[in-house]
Design a protein around this nucleic acid. Structure first.
Lengths: 229, 229
DNA sequence: CGGTCACCGCATGCATACAAGATGCATCGA
DNA sequence: TCGATGCATCTTGTATGCATGCGGTGACCG
């Protein structure tokens, strides 16, 4: 269905460039040009230009007039901003869900359980891509339950940025997947019991662990480093 | 400084079209074309095209291949989504602020008081544009205090959409500005005392009133309309 | 008289051409 | 030697031309 053949040039330029940024082929700080990408993909600059514009809106590229496009490097403040926004949006979904009729909540909980089964299986089979995909499904399902397109779109963009942040720290030991799964289970468990506060707390723990894996140092409580302003 | 002379064609196309959508010159449901705008602004289709792309990303336009650009009409679900997202983001700022050192909180509270003074003066002078601008500053200042660029950008887009929603219901009587100001003061008051829960409550009341003004049906005194949670 | 199909206008998608700004370097002068 | 200046080059910004695809209209056929 999604064969590359039936895709517009603009779409190809967008996906290809985005993929290269997200998987690290284009490291942060790199300066790329429309011409380069256009040549590489055998198309004119026009579609590439539109792709660049879109990527800039998503915060992956920064365009400098007459100079080129800079692949933005992930900064500590961006890591913090992404995690804070994720906590806000996912936490909101959890809270909203816990205040919904139990029937609705059960539907979502079931869906989440299903995803967790898949994730568990992926972990057992040591299928890393499947595990990552299940992880994605888990969080997306959660946010979808809030039925707010604006927040859902924001969240999609946050996930992309998160992907890139994870690259820098591939040191997540073999233990980390188990931790992730356990934290997911804790969240769903609290959700199943309808205890919003605990669900949000579990979510925070989960994201804190993510932060620790990304910055390499598990953030305690202070973190009053170079706050400046 | 921001004279139209020193602006790129792309920027002109973007601002002009966006302004026309936001102020209602281009009503929802209208189908516009790149050529129309290009002719009107005496430029080629290329910059207009890029402006359209950006406006689509912001949710103001919907592009149909080979057909044209549809000015999206505000739907009830969009109103709800915008207000929900606003409450989430602004509420987060309030909560975060209440958990910050009192010095930081005081700085923001002072800034907000300053904005309120301006808004009060604008109300007395019956200067509607100034009042609206102060309203904008108030909320922006609040969100800025969270120091999260991602949330700030999201919020800017939310404000734009809100502007357009307000057009449909210009029935906000002469009493509404007073109500707005009072609600702003209530929020700042709670913030000044550092009581997060109350500040968030006041915010919710404020947004509920907005919802009432937009959908045309005031949520009454109880405000027990969309309970949901 | 109703339905179908071919044709035509219109709008976009993409490629190409041209203009203008910015950078870096070589050169020139003090 | 060091700093200023002018040029070569690169990249974006904008305009224009052509191909493609969609929709509507009107003629034609059953």
């Amino acid at each position: 269905m999604t064969g590359t053949g039936g895709m517009s040039a603009k779409e190809r330029a967008y996906r290809d460039t985005k993929a290269r940024i997200l998987d690290g082929s284009l490291p942060g700080g790199d300066l790329i040009t429309e011409g380069q990408v256009a040549d590489a993909l055998a198309m004119s600059r026009t579609p590439v230009r539109e792709a660049f514009l879109r990527l800039e809106a998503e915060g992956l590229l920064r365009l400098f007039p007459k100079r080129g496009a800079l692949v933005v490097a992930v900064s500590p403040s961006e890591v913090e901003a992404v995690l804070e926004a994720r906590e806000l949006v996912e936490g909101h979904a959890l809270t909203k869900l816990c205040g919904s009729p139990e029937a609705d909540r059960a539907v979502v909980a079931d869906a989440l359980h299903e995803v967790l089964d898949i994730q568990r299986a992926a972990l057992a089979a040591e299928d890393e891509p499947a595990f990552a995909e299940a992880d994605r499904r888990f969080h997306i399902t959660l946010v979808e339950s809030a039925r707010n397109m604006i927040l859902l779109e924001l969240y999609a963009s946050l996930r992309d940025r998160q992907l890139r942040m994870n690259l820098g720290s591939l040191d997540r030991g073999p233990h980390r997947p188990h931790e992730i799964l356990a934290q997911h289970e804790a969240i769903v468990d609290a959700l199943g019991r309808g205890v919003a506060d605990e669900a949000v707390l579990r979510l925070r723990e989960h994201l804190d662990a993510t932060r620790g894996a990304v910055v390499g140092r598990t953030a305690g409580a202070g973190g009053a480093s170079a706050l400046g302003r």
